[in-house]
């Protein structure tokens, strides 16, 4: 079995477990390379269907290419798209460093849409190799009544048995891509010919490795302008994937605090 097939199979298993055990469900779609793969795997798991709403938590500050991509493929893939808005920056905890404060808007936007839709579970396309705090996550990760993550007392999770029941009012984050690496996402995108926003490809010597809000995301130096070139670059690079995401680097524990309060 090729390792990509193994990764795919594991994700399909997780998606089907969640679909069977948690109701109602929603899937976060950030329009990036990872959540596109997650959506693709969902269609694999449910034989062409996406049997739950797909949620875009819109900060209003994404790149225009991202909005165009969203509108095109929501229709093309026949998605039940739900868009959530984020509150203004003035309402966010002023003790956070600036970029983290900006990112925290998304947490609040997510909480609002979660409340509105009353989701018991929500899929998020995070991966362990992106960020050291995410590396400590569970596949099925319970959240408290205010979406908070108790990172110091996570449930045991082994042998493919997940936490699927939670008290009323709290929810579970499900991470079907937790075991994927950045390079796996690209190899799979190539194998399956999954559409991708071209901001990921080099323009004037720079490309985005990770897409977030325009004002807090920087491109990295790169000449990779095709999927094959991106894969070749990743095989040798020593630059961290989220090096261009300002919110990760402001404080020692800025990202941990964001996640503790409900960030993805």
């Amino acid at each position: 079995m090729h390792y990509l097939a193994r990764l795919e199979s594991e994700s399909i298993y997780i998606l089907r477990e969640a679909y069977r055990t948690i109701h109602p469900l929603g899937m976060l779609w950030s329009l990036g390379k990872d959540s596109n793969v997650m959506l693709w795997l969902t269609r694999k798991a449910f034989l062409g269907r996406v049997p739950f709403p797909v949620v875009h938590v819109d900060t209003g500050k994404k790149f225009p290419e991202m909005y165009a991509f969203r509108d095109r493929y929501a229709e093309h893939w026949n998605l039940n798209l739900v868009c959530g808005e984020c509150p203004p920056i003035e309402t966010i905890d002023p003790s956070l460093p600036p970029a983290a404060r900006s990112a925290a808007r998304k947490t609040e936007g997510l909480k609002a849409i979660m409340d509105k839709e009353a989701f018991a579970g929500v899929f998020a396309g995070i991966r362990r190799d992106e960020q050291a705090v995410r590396a400590k996550e569970r596949v099925f990760s319970p959240r408290g009544l205010n979406a908070e993550w108790d990172q110091h007392d996570q449930p045991a999770e082994f042998w493919g048995q997940y936490t699927t029941r939670m008290p009323q009012g709290s929810h579970i984050r499900i991470h079907p891509l937790l075991h994927w690496r950045e390079i796996d996402i690209w190899r799979y995108t190539k194998r399956e010919n999954i559409p991708i926003i071209d901001l990921y490809f080099s323009r004037n010597g720079y490309r985005y490795r990770s897409l977030g809000d325009q004002d807090i995301t920087e491109p990295v130096k790169s000449s990779a302008s095709t999927i094959d070139e991106v894969i070749a670059e990743l095989e040798t690079t020593k630059v961290a994937e989220r090096a261009g995401r300002a919110m990760d680097h402001e404080d020692e524990d800025a990202f941990e605090r964001l996640r503790q309060h409900g960030y993805m």
Partner: peptide, 16 residues
């Protein structure tokens, strides 16, 4: 990666 782990010099949770 957790601040508490560095503060206390002890690994709390597993990582990969």
């Amino acid at each position: 990666a957790f601040k508490a782990e560095r503060d206390q010099g002890v690994t709390i949770d597993t990582t990969q």
